[in-house]
Amino acid sequence: MTRMRQNRITSRFEALKTEGRAGLITYVMAGDPDVETAFEILKGLPAAGADLIELGFPFSDPMAEGPPIQRAALRALKAGMTLRGTLDLVRRFRVNDQTTPIILMGYTNPVLTYGFGPFAADAAAAGVDGLIIVDSPPEEAAELSDALDVAGISLIRLTAPTTDDKRLETVVKRTSGFVYYVSVAGVTGVKEADAATVAPAVARVRKASNLPVAVGFGIKTPERAAAVARVADAVVVGSALVEEIASAAATDSLAAPKVLASVSALAQAVRMARLDVSVT
């Protein structure tokens, strides 16, 4: 079991490498705008073209998020979502999908409250493959890393434009699966990444970690996703999708088909990105 789980992220990146393209990682918030709609979206993501799934679990004080994901967290909390509820969603998703990697993303306090050991065991049993904890730098993560190692869940680290080469060594220690490069200094969903700075940064992180590098923060459109897909191993899109859920919820229209259509457009752009380069 453990080995299968560990391998979901790795085998997905190996498959992408064979296909010669970057992957699309989509971020949505568990329970946003309500539990059943969130499940419907989650269930539809692989067919729409998401190669890996980041599933946010809500926290009342998400200090690295811009307004879209802040509001998503509040909607999810209002809908009664919890970390336990997030694991339930994953469990339901795994009934029909054994291959798409799921990475949970959020903040320390709900995981600490759950207990690192019990959380890691329950998350692994539910079918979680990786974990990103925004406010847990390596200096504070030893205990969490130990618990995740036992359960066979990858701790995926963030690196930033402010992470210099020396610090990069510390950051990529005890990480596995892939490394998430935060392409702008800022919160999610606000500033746009400067494509010119992304390529050398990705190369730097790849060299230090020997792992695939996913790039996120500030990637909103298929065009931007394609540009990043030319240089990174995966592209993360979150706030733009979350905004669509918000606007659908606000107008009482169906969020799932709308969001999944956007995911398809992004997936297509990411899949075509390197072909475009060879054509032009």
């Binding site: 690295a64 406010d135 730098p137 504070e140 963030l158 930033a160 434009p161 992470t163 210099d164 610090r167």
Partner: peptide, 12 residues
């Protein structure tokens, strides 16, 4: 105590 901040802030 400790330093539970996002990686972007950690060097600062």
């Amino acid at each position: 105590g400790g330093r539970y901040v996002a990686e972007t802030l950690m060097p600062l």
